[in-house]
Amino acid sequence: MTPEQLADALTRTCVVIPAFNEGESIGAVVRAVYEHMPGATVVVVNDGSTDDTEANARAAGANVVSLPLNLGIGGAVQTGYKFAVRRGLHFAVQVDGDGQHDPREAPHLFASLVRGEADMVVGSRWLGRGDYVAPRNRRFAMKFLEALVSWRAGSRFTDTTSGFRALNRRTMELFAEHYPSDFPEVESIVLAHHHGLRVTEVPVKMVAREFGTSSITGLRSLYFMIRVTVGLLVGVMGGEEK
C-alpha cells in the first residue's frame, strides 16, 4: 500500500471510538487519531457517560453521537457502524476510548482491506510486534477463546478480545444490522465468518491502558467465558435471524 493509497483510504474511513466515562483519556485519543489518521471522519459514541466524555470529545473536534442510555459496548460500537454506513464511508476502524490502541498502528490494519483481500481485520497483540504481556490469570481464558474461535471461524485467531479492528463496507453493513450486545468482540469474528466474510488478523502494538481498569474482572470474567462460549456454540450456529 503506497502512502497515496493510504491517504485516499483514510478520507473514506470512519474511526469509531466507543466511550463510557472516558473523560480523562478521550481528548488525547481523539487528537492522536486526527494526527496519525489525517482525513478520517472520527466519531465518538458516548455510551451514556456521566462524566465530561461528550464535552472533551467535542472539544477535540470529534463528531459525537450520544446515546440517551447506556447500551453497553456492543450497542455503542454498532451505533458507530450505523453512523459510518449512513455517512457513506467505505471503511471503519474501531479504536478504544481508553488509549490502549495506538492510531499509528492503523495502517497495518488497512493494508489487506484496501487491497480487497479481507473484509475485516483484527489487530492482535500476540503476533510478535510490541511487548504487551497479558496478566497471568487471563492467559487460560485467552487460550480457551483462541481455540474456540479458531475452530468456529475456520482459521487461527490469537487475540479474539481485541477491540482494535478495521472493517470494509460489507462488514459494516452486516454489523449495522446484527451485532452481539454483551461481549461482542469474540462473537463478531465468528458472525462475520458465518456470513461469508473474510476475517484475518494482523500484528499490532498495544500499550497497557493509561486510565481505568478492565471491565472484565473476577466473577464477571467467569460469566464472560460462559456467555461467550454459549454465544459461539449456540448463537451463531443456527444463523437463523429474524
Binding site: 453521537v65 450520544s66 442510555l69 451505533t79 453512523f83
Partner: peptide, 12 residues
C-alpha cells in the same frame, strides 16, 4: 437498543 441508537444518530 434500536430506538436509543436512532435518537443518538438523529440528535447528532
Amino acid at each position: 437498543r434500536v430506538l436509543a441508537q436512532e435518537i443518538a444518530l438523529v440528535r447528532e
